[in-house]
Design a protein around this nucleic acid. Structure first.
Lengths: 245, 245
DNA sequence: GTCGGGCTAAGGTCAGACCATAGCAAAGCG
DNA sequence: CGCTTTGCTATGGTCTGACCTTAGCCCGAC
């Protein structure tokens, strides 16, 4: 006889059907065995369904699940592909959750700040020489492309992703990706103009120096200042909020 | 002409079909309008599909998406329900992502430590009197149920969730829930025995006192120590896999 | 050589049937 | 009367097969 208080805990059931999980498991195996790498295309649905001895609809349920968490991406007419880039949940995940539970922009920023500053601190402790070289390169590229916001943005993103990799914790990296993706989703990029790229580059350089000198506290603090500045710059940008409800 | 480097960024497409998103939007509206609250049951699939003028399969795709991120839970034969409790992604999300990208247990713990200690710090700054009273209650209950691990565990979870609420940042709370759920998924509960509940209660009391006295640094540090202890206790537990069914 | 049409493959949607489970209600038994 | 058992019904889960829509390619016409 089960205890009665477990309603808050769980019934032991994940909530997803067996077949869906069978698909998930199969894909997981394919990836684990190296038969499927990021960017690769899955077999066609009809074929894969036949191989797994399940109907196409059930297969699609599994594919939908994996798409929802950003592992797969389907392109109509072309095929279904394994997601590239760093691991992350689907960009709409947090957006939808936010819409349902009323997440506020400042909370998103705070979450990003918490995670990314910790990640910077870890990176300062664990970055390899290779990581540091990469960071140096990206900083240099930033300085070199201060007149091209689009190009600058690319190196900005790469800089942050490299730090995530250097932190040695892919989970925190995934969470970071998810949050930033959701932020991009809500407010379109922050580099359009209005931001002083030179100042931004200086901040990145400071973060880089802290990581290179293995100073976690300084790295964390520098990242916090950088993101706080970015937050304020964006908050001061009035032209992008059509609905101030 | 699009730049060529954007393959890493995104194609502007979320990757999910229109109809799926229509369902998501509809449910979002229902929740936003208060017509649907956590714990409520959705209309039957057949009926809802008719109302939305889409086929049942398409509706199910949307429901599957929302289930994947923990917003809905379907129970065979009973119905589909809005998830209760704090917002969180589906427990299997991180588990699957982890299986695909090779997340390690210590990385999970580290992520939890980073987030939850920050959350504790925020809670120390923002907790209301009500929150503090709730925390006091849970701590008391912990001391009162040190001979009943099951009961103890309930108050343990509630304690951490209350801190998350007190932090005023539901996003960090959601991430925390997701990670802890994933940890529970991998290794079954840590309170079975082997853990000194009295010692554990002392740690919780220390965290509580730091929050009550509005000391973010102490709260953060206390939480870090608590989780580090829990991690070591679990790592030293060799008898894992009790039921190899 | 270039442009356009059409063919093929692949994902997206639809319709209807049937299966499996949960929950209740009525019937049957003590 | 109260408990058990049986069976109905509502609801999610799965299957089948058809058709639509899009992407990409090939090939013929100009």
């Amino acid at each position: 006889m089960k205890t009665e208080i477990q309603k808050e805990a769980q019934d032991g059931v994940t909530g997803h059907s067996q077949l869906t999980m069978q698909v998930v498991d199969h894909v997981r195996q394919l990836v684990a065995n190296g038969e499927l790498k990021p960017g690769d295309r899955l077999p066609p649905e009809r074929e894969l369904a036949r191989k797994l001895k399940i109907s196409r609809s059930s297969l699609r349920a599994g594919i939908g699940f994996l798409s929802a968490m950003g592992v797969l991406k389907s392109r109509h007419g072309a095929g279904t592909f394994v997601a590239t880039g760093p691991p992350a949940l689907d960009s709409s995940s947090l957006t939808v959750l936010g819409a349902l539970h009323g997440f506020l922009p400042w909370q998103m920023f705070e979450a990003r700040l918490v995670i990314e500053s910790s990640v910077a601190g870890l990176a300062a402790e664990r970055a390899t020489g290779e990581h540091i070289a990469e960071l140096a390169e990206e900083v240099a590229e930033m300085y070199a492309s201060m007149d091209d916001p689009q190009e600058y943005l690319i190196h900005d993103v790469r800089f942050h992703r490299t730090i995530a990799r250097a932190s040695g914790n892919p989970i925190l990296g995934a969470l970071m990706e998810t949050i930033t993706a959701s932020l991009y989703d809500t407010r379109r990029m922050t580099v359009d103009n209005s931001v002083d790229l030179k100042e931004s580059a200086e901040f990145h350089r400071e973060i880089f120096r802290a990581i290179r000198s293995r100073n976690p506290v300084a790295a964390k603090k520098a990242m916090e200042e950088h993101l706080n500045l970015a937050r304020m710059a964006q908050a001061a940008e009035p032209k992008a909020t059509p609905e101030p409800n």
